[in-house]
Design a protein around this nucleic acid. Structure first.
Lengths: 199, 199
DNA sequence: TAAATTAGCGTACAGTTGTAAGCTCAAAAA
DNA sequence: TTTTTGAGCTTACAACTGTACGCTAATTTA
């Protein structure tokens, strides 16, 4: 097997090992290099052949999580285009994402308020993508002026993420309830922003 | 000096030491017993005379933080009663709180999405207080029916906490901007909820 | 084919952690 | 006054951490 390929594979198994460790009870700052290496099936010191630091691995994970988030947006837009109500479709898509990418979303949430300045900044950047895209979308579809569209988008994203945090470890029925409540609350924001733009 | 009093003092110095360690870069799960003991000026093993665990200390801290939060609410209500607009006064009071009790609010934020199930539950309980009080207040002052009042209150609290997280380490000018944006966004929610209650 | 590169390993070390065991000595109780 | 209690201490240990150093062996390059 080619050397390059093998290296990529090991790198992947390190990343996967890290994600698998980020369960309900662990954060990036609480997983150790040795632990990751153990799960990845390599010697602790071999870790350094792939990452300078645990921090460098952490940033890689945040990047991957951000990528997943952007794919989520794309998927939501596709679904919206084929009808079904913007808020409804978005919330449903988001909730599916949380279910399927449990640890990925958890990583973003935790590091968003976490202890590492670099990680926080990295997560914030990903959330900003969300804000910008949603602002643009709102302006394009409703004609709201940019300041109000931006306020609306930001409020919506914050609400969605907050509820996502709550839904993450909730039972299925509870998740349904949360989703329905979220839809109503998003409706509040949309209607309120509309009213503000009219006065 | 009385034995009882001395014990209370040491306990306090342990708690204070812990709070002082919870700066921008540390969370409850990342501070060690030995470190707390060092700052508190006692031997590591003496810690056990006061707390069973680091976790027991953690829960104590969350309790204290919750207490501070409830005092915040009381203060906000007092100020509102003496005029000045509910949203305006509340946001200003909240922002002052974040400034003055930096590490206290940081603790709540971090542990809200943190790695310890017990801590998360404890923080959630404190936030629930907020929700209930705000729901009651909304019902009493606007006559909104409970389901809508509750949705509104929950959305507002989530938005306030999210913005608080952002404001925590922001520069003073940025904090002002965040406060003004938050006020507008809260207005969206209030207006949206009002509209929902009318249809 | 011979030489160079490099992913991964084993060993090693100093630093940190939580906490068990038992001592001291001042305050409280008898 | 004598006895009991208990907050705080010192010492000790096993477990874990990150990472420096140098080796091996297989792939890649010359």
């Amino acid at each position: 097997m080619s050397r390059q390929l093998q290296k990529l594979r090991t790198r992947r198994s390190i990343i996967d090992a890290a994600f698998s460790l980020l369960d309900e009870q662990r954060s990036l700052s609480s997983i150790s290099l040795r632990e990751v290496a153990r799960v990845a099936g390599i010697a602790p010191t071999s870790f350094y052949r792939h990452f300078k630091d645990i921090d460098e691995l952490g940033l890689t994970l945040v990047d991957e999580a951000g990528l997943a988030l952007r794919q989520l947006m794309r998927q939501a837009r596709l679904r919206i285009a084929s009808g079904g109500g913007v808020i409804n479709t978005s919330v449903e898509t988001f909730m599916e994402f949380i279910n399927d990418n449990n640890n990925v979303f958890r990583l973003l949430l935790r590091e968003h308020t976490g202890t590492s300045v670099a990680f926080r900044a990295a997560v914030l950047r990903e959330i900003q993508h969300f804000n910008v895209e949603l602002t643009d979308y709102t302006m394009a579809t409703t004609g709201l002026k940019s300041t109000i569209a931006n306020l609306q988008a930001e409020a919506m994203v914050k609400l969605v993420f907050s509820t996502g945090a709550e839904a993450l470890d909730a039972a299925p029925e509870r998740k349904k309830v949360l989703a329905e409540r979220l839809k109503l609350q998003l409706r509040f924001i949309v209607d309120g922003a509309l009213k503000a733009s009219q006065s």
